[in-house]
Design a protein around this nucleic acid. Structure first.
Lengths: 145, 145
DNA sequence: GGCAATAGCTTGGAGTTGTCAAGCATTTGA
DNA sequence: TCAAATGCTTGACAACTCCAAGCTATTGCC
């Protein structure tokens, strides 16, 4: 009867949370000479995982491969990343963080973790939130036909 | 010991959820001749609330007032919104949905609600998620000095 | 009332982001 | 071997965004 479904309000909350966290790190972005798009790209370069190819980055960022070319150019100019041709297939290139890039990413992530509104939740609450979001994001196993 | 904090993984999940929902409505955006930025603006024009001023829209969208001028121009060209000077203060203008805009927004919201990964959660789970996010987004009452 | 200061929106200029189509290099497979 | 497919880049163009400057309307101080 209230006309606004629970899912609708949830979508607004999720979006607001993302925007609010972004807003909280604006000053650090300026300090690191990063824009939001570049910060997004840097964020995706997880040092604990394999260096992604340009195409994999495009998938992560939900954008065109040519946009990744542009973003990678900027990150290289800033000294945060380097491109190198992948061994075994000289067509593909992988993007890896430099040590400067590693430090910049760490500073970005640390700031976000500290300042996000999510940080106000207790560990128990965060774990509950994590489990719920993971459940939603994980596709259910297909029922056999 | 795992090096990746719970809050970090939560931030990734929230961002991924927002992106995933956006991706799910891409075809409807094209159908409505909307870009992401315009869809964001349309989404904010809640028909059940008072029509916002340009400045209030800028706050909602976390952008410059001149950007709202641009977006409002587009929404007017598309026939989705109209600007009118506010009664009582002829400086300020409020943005209101046309009936076409109302229909477009409804189509957008309905699609998002149906297709978002959040729709896979039960009502109980959604309510729990809603409560957790609301707790995080709501600033705590100030302790008295 | 009259005038300076303020507030709200728009315009112009510039830089960033994004897509699409075309192009080049490499690899795959027939 | 050579056509097709794959991966990245380039160029052209549109969309988005901010800043500074400008205009109009309002507020507040004499």
């Amino acid at each position: 009867m209230d006309g606004e479904s629970l899912t609708y309000r949830l979508l607004r909350l999720v979006h607001a949370m993302d925007m609010a966290t972004n807003a909280e790190v604006d000053d650090v972005l300026a300090e690191l000479k990063l824009t939001h798009a570049l910060a997004d790209a840097l964020w995706q370069l997880d040092p604990t995982a394999d260096a992604p190819t340009m195409r994999q980055m495009a998938a992560k960022l939900h954008c065109d491969p040519s946009t990744v070319t542009f973003l990678a150019d900027r990150l290289e100019q800033l000294g945060y990343a380097t491109r190198s041709t992948a061994p075994g297939d000289r067509r593909t290139k992988v993007i890896a963080l430099t040590s400067d890039g590693h430090a910049a990413r760490q500073r970005l992530v640390d700031t976000a973790i500290t300042r996000t509104p999510l940080a106000r939740l207790t560990e128990t609450e965060q774990r509950a939130l994590h489990d719920l979001l993971t459940t939603a994001m994980t596709p259910q196993p297909q029922a056999s036909s």
